[in-house]
Simulated scan of single mutants.
Amino acid sequence: MAGRYRTLAWRAVPLAGLAAAFALSSLPANDSALGLVLPLVGLLVLMGVVFACVWHADVIAHRTGEPYGTLVLTVAVTVIEVALILSIMLAGEGKPTLARETVFSVIMVVCNGVVGLCLILGGLRYGEQGFRLPGASAYLVVLMPLATLTLILPTWTTSMPGPFYTTSQLAFVSFVTIILYAVFLYVQTVRHRDYFLSDLGGASEDHAPPGQRQLWESVVLLLVGLVAVVLLAKGVSGSIETAVVSIGAPTEAVGLLVALLVLLPETVAALRSARRNELQKSLNLALGSSLATIGLTIPAVSLLAIVLKQPLELGVDMHDTVLLVLTFAVSLVTFAGGRTNILPGFVHLVLFAVFVFMVFVP
């Protein structure tokens, strides 16, 4: 009975979020009281819709199976992330560093925070967990050059001063990024689909796959929820920056907050899979998020910057470069043997703690 009410609630949340988005946009915000309350209400509604979107994406995932299931989750989260980034970039005077900060934060949160927690949770319960080595290698072999091209190389180019690409460089790198991600998707879903299947001793799901009617309901409600997220993001973008400024945090914390907001539901799904001894599915969710963030977010933001002739600061500074290179080096060791335990999990979690600390104490 509780599960039935929970299902009905998740079905209602996207529709309620869409209605709230239209209602909030039509209310006058010049009143000081409304100016404080409306962004907070919008943020709470946005979080509820985000969780609902991921729930419906998970229903679709159970029907389509792996690796299409995690791909649906990843694309849904990426759409939410792009909506938030574009809304904040276009608000006020604009924020040319937000895309860089968010993408870098997503990589750190996923490759260190989420992966570390999954390895620790699974290791404490099962001792060791196995995964498909070719699948993990496929993620890393694409993720490392994509992160280098979009976050490190702009700092060292000479055609334009500062950590910026010229328009031609930005267009070329965006094109290469899309090509690499498209090839990866082909390998993941067609050519070598078995690399990403979770069949190494994972527990079975605790519920049956959804029926055809429930599947199409979730498809429609997922689309409705994503539209609601896009509409709510415009009103919430200002409140995110206000919250960061009010606690005296640096502006880089905006990217971290956006990353945590959009990755929270997917993190819960990854941890749940690790707890069921389905580490491969956890890696599909985690590492797939990093790939989709670069492969889809960077081209979308770059297109916006080119069309609107806005500056887009992509290159990270030296201490972020060190953290990025160290993260990839540790990941290569972590996923080199096909089995993991709690030790690499704690190493990744320490790297994540260092990243968060450096955001507030650079």
Rank of each mutant, 00 (worst) to 15 (best):
M89W: 03
R100D: 05
A29N: 09
H62G: 02
L143Y: 01
C118T: 13
L326D: 03
V359I: 15
V176A: 11
V220N: 07
G122N: 05
V183A: 12
A305P: 04
A33W: 12
F175Q: 04
A249T: 03
A249H: 02
S87V: 03
E278T: 15
F335K: 04
I80H: 01
A2P: 02
W55V: 10
T158Q: 13
G295W: 04
Y165D: 07
R191M: 14
P299K: 00
E128L: 10
F104A: 07
K234R: 13
C111F: 09
I240Q: 02
R193P: 04
E93N: 15
L231C: 06
V254C: 04
L308N: 11
A16C: 12
V72C: 06
Y195P: 00
R272P: 04
S282Y: 05
S331I: 00
R63P: 01
F335W: 15
G127P: 11
T242R: 14
M160Y: 10
S168R: 12
K234H: 12
T334N: 10
P210A: 09
T167S: 13
P344F: 04
K95L: 04
R63C: 00
V103W: 03
V13K: 07
E101W: 11
V307M: 06
T189I: 15
G69Y: 03
G135L: 08
R6W: 14
Y68H: 13
L332Q: 12
L24W: 07
S246G: 11
A171Q: 01
P67I: 09
V227L: 14
L314Q: 11
G116H: 03
L38A: 14
I240N: 00
L291G: 13
R191F: 15
E278V: 11
D317F: 01
V361I: 11
F355Q: 01
V13E: 05
S198K: 00
L291M: 12
L98G: 05
V141G: 05
L264T: 14
A12T: 12
G94E: 01
V176R: 06
L36D: 08
V190I: 15
H319Q: 11
P265Q: 05
T148F: 13
S26N: 09
L231Y: 01
A274C: 12
W10C: 08
